[in-house]
Structure formats: structure tokens, C-alpha cells
Design a protein around this nucleic acid. Structure first.
Lengths: 242, 242
DNA sequence: GCCGTCAAAGTGATTAGATGACTTAAACAC
DNA sequence: GTGTTTAAGTCATCTAATCACTTTGACGGC
């Protein structure tokens, strides 16, 4: 009866269960594929198929010659599709619209929760933004804001949106000013600190709508201007979709 | 240079690419594993590992003895983690909070978009709800509402939330009345039809908060009352988290 | 003693071939 | 024409082996 699902899928869930029961944290290594095969009384190829499943969902990482490592996403419930390919500017706008729809609510929640630790994280995210920026970093202001809401489902959704965005990004270059970006973030953070949910929500919405407007404006000149002034551009366009 | 990613991951992306370029739709079958192995000049186990990745993300389904089938999720960007296990009542509340944070915005969007076809879908979803209910059906009112927003990222997020919820559900039984549920849906739909975004948003929020309140109230009696009146309960508790 | 080189062991990556189980549909008998 | 049987195609799993990469520790030069 229980065998209505395949051996591989069952094995996958068993591996996840042992990761949890053994309290393995992200960064730690799983037993070798051979060891897992013996423990669960299956063969190595079967184990590998199970690990590939977990790899696709970001739960583990297979490092050639090194081992299999637990990854953060094992604790996430909402993921981005790692195999999704089509990325154009329309998709970028759609993602921004999605953010406009959900982030004001997140900001409002964050203001009502008032988590001290989360506020600190947002503070440092504010500074980080003026430095270098990586792909979808922990320390991203909007992600920290979502975490401050205390609702993991919400922050996971935002992380997913931003992850997708980072793959779309090449198509959507923005000229959104870095300093303006910083100022608006500071305004949102201020409202959150004061516990003013309405203001936080409102500012977040305006912030994202301004970014969207900037993206659309940047889109207007169509084919041209694509090649011009890369160096100059880089100085002002780094603020980007945050 | 391009080989910084493994053979399996590259193969996975190539398979997705050919599914798209061959315009294979959900329900159609992929070439056999052996055929794929020959086409991409790898061996069958390697192909299988790639297919397992796609299986984990819901992009394909491997049917024993039959074939490999394309599935809907190949067109989704946001997914639920199929390997996520821990599910308790606190998680259910968190998911409801997430819905409260995002669905009002979705309803507002839907009201402003005014897609005729989507409204029709919501109409029939309204009726379906009084009939039997499956897991996370297409035809679910809130999903159709999200689709009516015209933003796929939003509807995908909601589908993910509900999919997670359906796995959590056993822990969270609600006494939310089916008729009340229907009436509130009708009210939201009415507001959407009128293009009254504010009203649609407001009603959605109240609707979800009422459900949350019902879930919490049901939780109060803690350990007791869990076993009592299953038959009676079933008559009124079917409305559930919609 | 310290540090760099190198060899060996451990681990994942990929291949190869074979067997079993399940599904489907065509061939066959009635 | 209908039902059963059979055969082909397909996924599922296993066994066995080779290759490639990483890490570590021993060895020897400095």
C-alpha cells in the first residue's frame, strides 16, 4: 500500500528525515553515497537519483570529489524553479508587480512585529547596499524586511522572486539611483522602527512603483542606447531592483 | 569554462530546452530515456538523474512502464518544496498570515484588471466549492482570483501556499462554515466585477482573518475535543481554508 | 622546525550492461 | 466483433567498473 510511490521518492524522504533526526545543519556533509546505500539497503545509483532530487530543490549540494552537503533550502517551503528558462523584460515587470502586491503587506507586518534583532539586520543591510552587491545576498534590504515580518513563508516568497529576478536581470537594467534607493530604504526602515505600519506599507509601495517606473522608462529607448556608456552607467545603475 | 556546472545539470537544462523548442505540452510524453541518452550522447543513468531533477520540481513525471510525461509545473517559476516535512498548527497559522499579507493585494489587482475569462472561472469556482473538493484543485476560488490578477508569479505563490497547506491540513481542522465561506467569496467576486479594488481587498482580508480566527478558536480546546463528533463535524467543517 | 611537493585514499561522476516489472497495444482465437 | 493473450516498449533497479576531483597526510627540502 505504501508502495504506491516509487523507491526513489521514498528514499528521498527518508534521507531528509535522517538529516533532520541527525540534526545536520546547512554546510555539514551527508554520509557518502555508498554509506547511504548500505544504510537504506539500496544501490548507489538509486541513492544518487534521490540525491539529484534533493539537489534540484536546493536541499543538498553534490561536490565532486568532496562530498554531499546540506544546504539552506532544506528548511524552505517555497522555492524558485531552477529549471525555468524564459526570461524577458515583460517577466521582469511581472515580478515587480508581484512585489508591489505583496511587499507593502510585508512591511506593515514588520512594523507591527518590532523584532529587535531583525531591525539590526535591516540596519546593516542598509549599509551593505552602498558597498558591493552580490546576487541575492543574505543582507539584502528587502529580504531582511521580509524576515522582520516574522513570517518565513513571506520571506521565502520574496527570496524566490529575487532569485528569479537575478536570472532575469540581464534583460532589465535599471538606472535607479543608488542613493535614492538608500534613502527610500531608510525611510521604510524608519517607519518600521516607529511601528507605523501604514507608513511603512505606503513607503514600500511607492518605492517599488518608482523602481518599476524607472525600469519602464529605461525600456522606452528600445534597441538603441544599449551599448553606450557602460562605464558611466555602472556608476549610477548599481542600485538596481532593491 | 562552461563546464563549471556538472554534466547532469547541463543535461537537465538541455532537456528543458528541447521540451520548449519541440513545443511539448503538459501531458505529452518525452522520448524514452534510451533515446534521450543517444541524442545527448550520454548514458541512461545520467539521463535518469537529470529526469529525477525535473521530477522533483514537478516539471516531468516518470511513469513506470509507460513513459516520461511533461507536467504543468514546467511553466511555473515558484514552487513548493516537495521534500519539506515538518507540519504543525503553528505552520498553518503562518501560512494563513502569509495569505492575509498577499491576497488583499491580489484581489485589488484582480479588480483593476477585469479579465472577463478569469471572472467566468471564478464564477464556476464559486459553484464548485459547494460540491466535492479535491486537494488543491484548479477551480479553487482563491487560485482563480489570483489568476484573475493577470500576474502569474502571484498565482503561483498562492498555489504553492495552498499546496503546502494541503499537506499541513491534517493538523488544522477548521469549523469554518461552508455557506459562510461561499457567501464571502461571492462578496469578493462581486467587488471584483464592479472594479472596486478597495472593497475587494478589504473583503478578502476580512475573509481570511475570519478563517484564521476560526482556526485559532478550534485550536483552543487543545488536547480534548479532538476525537468528538467526527460525523457532525464533517458536515460543517468542509468549507475549510479557502 | 617550517613549508611546499607529492602520493594515496576517499568520494562523487559517468559509463556499461543486464535483469525485472509494468504498461500498452497489437495479434490472435473464439 | 469481442475478449484474451502475447509481445514490444518503457521505466526501475541492480551490479560492476573506470575516471575525475578533493582532501589529507607523509615525505623531503629548506
Amino acid at each position: 500500500m505504501n508502495t504506491s510511490i516509487g523507491l526513489v521518492e521514498r528514499l528521498t524522504l527518508e534521507i531528509v528525515a535522517t538529516i533532520r533526526s541527525d540534526n545536520l545543519q546547512p554546510g555539514q556533509t551527508l554520509p557518502s553515497a555508498k554509506a547511504l546505500a548500505e544504510r537504506f539497503e539500496v544501490t548507489v545509483p538509486t541513492v544518487r537519483e534521490a540525491l539529484r532530487r534533493l539537489e534540484a530543490t536546493g536541499s543538498v549540494e553534490l561536490k565532486h570529489g568532496s562530498g554531499t552537503y546540506v544546504r539552506e533550502a532544506i528548511n524552505r517551503r517555497i522555492l524558485d524553479n531552477p529549471h525555468y528558462v524564459p526570461v524577458d523584460l515583460a517577466a521582469a515587470i511581472e515580478l515587480l508587480d508581484a512585489r508591489i502586491a505583496i511587499e507593502p503587506g510585508i512591511a506593515e507586518l514588520a512594523a507591527s512585529v518590532q523584532d529587535a534583532a531583525a531591525v539590526t539586520s535591516m540596519d546593516s543591510a542598509l549599509d551593505n547596499a552602498l558597498q558591493v552587491q552580490t546576487a541575492v545576498p543574505a543582507g539584502h534590504f528587502h529580504v531582511e524586511l521580509a524576515k522582520a515580518s516574522g513570517n518565513r513563508a513571506l520571506s521565502e516568497m520574496l527570496v524566490s522572486l529575487l532569485a528569479i529576478h537575478s536570472r532575469t536581470q540581464q534583460a532589465a537594467r535599471t538606472t535607479y539611483d543608488r542613493l535614492r534607493d538608500h534613502d527610500e530604504h531608510a525611510g521604510i526602515l524608519d517607519a518600521v522602527k516607529r511601528g507605523d505600519g501604514f507608513e511603512a506599507s505606503h513607503r514600500t509601495r511607492r518605492h517599488l512603483e518608482a523602481i518599476k517606473a524607472a525600469v519602464l522608462a529605461d525600456w522606452q529607448p528600445e534597441g538603441e542606447a544599449e551599448v553606450a556608456g557602460d562605464a558611466n552607467r555602472a556608476a549610477t545603475s548599481a542600485g538596481d531592483l532593491r
